[in-house]
């Protein structure tokens, strides 16, 4: 056997130093930034688990001496907003009833819109698309009053159905843009091949385009669920106390000026309200990655 070659000078992989200046800077910055974001969350969780006497002692960073879930129960089912004293639960179910139909309606309509605009270039498609995009840049405030009148005439003002319609319409420009660009990025030849194979508008949409579009649907769901769930403006304008979404109710609980400020209840209410978008991020984040990986297959 030949002797192993003896090298002089650098050879093989370059040795790495774990505590190089670069690593210290990098991880130091990352730790500081994440602390910056996590400390308020920590304070919220800790405070929501304390009783009022403990909060009055003023050590907001101290962990609870006695863990109590009372504030959470109170925030969910007993906190008062105006005349109603049934907590956030009412707002939660209102928000669910607003979010689910609006997300479904806006995504279904926008995906068909985007598909038609990308693949079936009809006469005036560009003008239509231009108007739609222009719609995305009009400030919401301009349209608030006209929509109040429209909803009133339709008998949907202060009804959940009215809010669903409003959310579906306002999601349309950005979602259509999203879907159009995604469908336009799919190879045009696939569309042509499907036409030669005798598939028509809906056949191509359901059999060819939809199965290839999971990633963009997940993106649209994330966008819409968080956007509609977190909406405050439309909720406060187009609903009434009975039909307020969760965000508006949260505001009413936190900003109530009567009685003592129950910080623990406020914190619990806020965490409850934020739980849904958080949940969506966690669940769909994984789906999203999987969807992108599956969609990366080139035909």
């Amino acid at each position: 056997m030949a002797d192993p070659v003896q090298f002089t000078g650098p050879h093989g992989p370059k040795p790495k130093t774990p505590f190089s200046r670069r690593n210290i800077m990098l991880y130091g910055t990352l730790i500081v930034v994440s602390l910056y974001y996590l400390v308020p969350l920590y304070v919220m969780i800790v405070t929501s688990l304390k009783g009022m006497p403990e909060i009055r002692m003023g050590n907001i960073f101290a962990p609870p001496m006695e863990i109590t879930f009372e504030p959470w129960v109170k925030a969910w089912s007993q906190a008062c907003t105006g005349l109603n004293c049934d907590g956030l639960s009412r707002g939660f179910w209102n928000s669910v009833q607003i979010t689910i139909p609006s997300v479904l309606a806006s995504i279904i309509i926008a995906s068909v819109n985007g598909y038609a605009l990308a693949n079936w270039r009809f006469k005036g498609a560009n003008v239509f698309f231009g108007i739609l995009i222009f719609g995305a840049f009009i400030p919401y405030q301009v349209m608030i009053y006209p929509i109040v009148i429209m909803l009133r005439e339709m008998g949907l003002y202060t009804k959940l159905g009215g809010l669903v319609i409003v959310h579906s319409i306002f999601g349309m420009p950005i979602l259509t843009l999203l879907f159009r660009n995604y469908f336009a990025s799919l190879p045009e030849e696939l569309f042509k091949a499907a036409r030669v194979d005798g598939a028509r508008f809906w056949g191509i949409y359901f059999r060819i385009m939809l199965p290839m579009s999971m990633p963009i649907f997940v993106v649209a769901v994330i966008l819409q669920v968080t956007g509609i769930w977190n909406d405050f403006l439309f909720g406060v304008i187009y609903a009434k106390p009975d039909s307020y979404p969760m965000t508006v109710q949260l505001n009413n609980i936190v900003n109530s000026v009567q009685g003592v400020k129950e910080y623990n209840v406020n914190m619990a209410a806020t965490l409850l309200t934020g739980a849904v978008p958080l949940f969506i991020y966690f669940v769909s984040g994984k789906l999203f990655v999987r969807g992108v990986a599956a969609g990366a297959v080139k035909g």
């Binding site: 190879p187 030849e189 696939l190 042509k192 091949a193 030669v196 059999r207 060819i208 290839m212 035909g299």
Partner: peptide, 14 residues
Amino acid sequence: GIGMVFQSYALYPQ
């Protein structure tokens, strides 16, 4: 009564 073959194959990936 035509069949077409495309440059990028255009096979349905799913």
